[in-house]
Design a protein around this nucleic acid. Structure first.
Lengths: 120, 120
DNA sequence: TAGTAATTTCGCTATTAAACGAAATGATAT
DNA sequence: ATATCATTTCGTTTAATAGCGAAATTACTA
């Protein structure tokens, strides 16, 4: 029963990684925790789509959420015991380091500020 | 130009890994090189679908093909310089080792024989 | 308690991907 | 060279996924 789920877990992880915006989110979260509207601002897609991406990353085990006032902070899960998940989180920053889009995302992350962004 | 392709390469690799039959194929190829009809026999899907999966794995860099008489042998690419690709090939066997479907695939691989299978 | 703001969920549309069978291709062997 | 067989490509159908906007939810705050 449990054993038959191993491959499904792997597939869920790899599917989560198969989308450009989700890779961008993961890389941003290596720099700091972010709320939905901060991510929305950088990706330039709707807030509902961001929320969906975050739930896919959470289901796969990559990120955790925590309430912070009226915001929800999302951050990388650094406590997972999953071998693939840990390796990916380790390798991705090196791998995507030189990607132009990732580079500009990471610059924007430094100065993004939820207090200026929100009030949808 | 080239740099903008880094993320697309990553996405291609993760998409290739996001399918059950392709994971099964990769694991089988860790044991020995196989032709299309041998893989078809174990997966129980049509030969054209197997061929499509193999082309996706080849495009992502996971496997290589070589002619062998009237057959085409597919084998793992162990010469890649790609960081993600190498790590995945290293980790996957450990990760999927206990999956029941993978276990039965790997038993079947031992005795599969193209000479008995073919004549579609 | 009512209002407001952040986030999630729902319903929909458009695109992508997996599967099949049939036809085309490539290569061996008679 | 022709027949045969393994594989690939093509055309189609069906299922999954990313995106949007609107409605629902959750939780501060006035």
């Amino acid at each position: 029963m449990i054993l038959r789920k191993i491959m499904n877990k792997a597939i869920k992880i790899f599917k989560a990684l198969s989308d450009k915006n989700r890779l961008r989110i993961l890389l941003m979260l290596t720099k700091k925790k972010l709320c939905v509207c901060e991510i929305q601002d950088i990706l330039s897609i709707t807030v509902s789509t961001v929320s969906k991406h975050l739930s896919i990353l959470r289901d796969a085990g990559f990120i955790l959420d925590e309430k912070d006032g009226k915001w929800v902070n999302y951050r990388l899960n650094t406590t997972s015991k999953d071998m693939i998940l840990n390796q990916v989180i380790l390798i991705l920053p090196f791998y995507l380091n030189d990607d132009e889009l990732i580079k500009s995302d990471l610059i924007k992350v430094q100065s993004v500020n939820r207090k200026n962004l929100c009030k949808i």
